[in-house]
């Protein structure tokens, strides 16, 4: 059992390494996409600077606090797309029968699919996350805690994406809806919890769990609480298990196809 887990991690590590090698085939494109993503994310600071020029706080949050939401969201989102970007291709894999290649291997299909792709611009998100933290809320403790929290955040975001994308096993061409829901998830992460009404907050704590990927981690960075941290850990484990269950249930409905194709 332990050896099997170790071997699965070895394959995931190798896949990520090979994906990285693929990205680096064209260094100029790779570096440009990272820099452009950092600029893209930074452009949103202007929006918040304008708001804080008019008002000292939003709810009880200062600019530094709001930037924590951006740091956590960008970092989690970036890490998720570096390590597990294959999940976002799952609807295509299902519709075009590309899961065949993964299903004939003696490894965990979900883990193998997740690490089958890497989004180069996600490095820009990750770097931006660290920059936002260092510029607005620097401390060694924060950096260490932030690193742990974005790992959990990336796992929550990926698990949520697995659940959404697995719906394609049951409903063909559902990816339009899942993409929209992923956007809602991300928007929920980027904006401070205080601006949302109670009903919306309930949604972000349940159906679209942005609160666990961003709000709780931000609160932990602002004021660490062991209880909240344990809730976060328990929720992460819960959503990972749920993602596996939904994916493997959906896999029974996989119908493959005979489309000609190559591994991307």
């Amino acid at each position: 059992m332990l050896t099997a887990v170790k071997n699965n991690f070895k394959i995931m590590f190798l896949s990520i390494k090979y994906n990285l090698m693929r990205c680096m085939e064209n260094n100029v494109a790779f570096m440009t996409s990272i820099i452009m993503m950092i600029f893209n994310n930074a452009s949103f600071i202007i929006q918040w600077l304008t708001i804080f020029a008019l008002k000292e706080t939003v709810g009880s949050y200062t600019l530094n606090d709001v930037m924590l939401f951006w740091a956590v969201s960008s970092g989690s989102f970036g890490l998720a797309h570096i390590l597990f970007n294959g999940i976002h291709k799952l609807p295509d894999y299902i519709e075009e029968g590309k899961l065949d290649a993964y299903l004939t291997m003696p490894k965990n299909v979900l883990c193998y699919v997740a690490t089958s792709s890497l989004e180069p611009s996600a490095f820009g998100d990750l770097i931006y996350g660290y920059l936002a933290l260092i510029i607005f809320n620097f401390s060694i403790k924060n950096i260490l805690l932030y690193t742990l929290l974005i790992i959990l955040g990336s796992l929550i975001f990926t698990s949520f994406a697995v659940i959404l994308n697995s719906i394609t096993f049951f409903i063909f061409r559902f990816s339009y809806v899942t993409e929209a829901l992923k956007e809602v998830f991300l928007n929920g992460c980027l904006y401070p919890d205080v601006i949302f009404k109670r009903a919306v907050k309930i949604i972000f704590f349940t159906l679209i769990p942005s609160a666990f990927a961003s709000w709780i981690p931000v609160h932990l960075l602002m004021n660490f609480s062991l209880n909240k941290f344990l809730i976060l850990i328990i929720f992460t484990i819960f959503i990972i298990i749920l993602a596996f269950i939904v994916f493997y249930r959906g896999l029974k409905n996989y119908s493959s196809s005979n489309l000609m194709g190559i591994r991307g």
Binding site: Y18, E25, D100, A101, T104, L259, M260, R263, G264
Partner: peptide
């Protein structure tokens, strides 16, 4: 071996 589908990483 599926003649119509490749399993290899094409950049490797």
């Amino acid at each position: 071996v599926f003649g119509q589908k490749e399993q290899l990483w094409i950049h490797l």
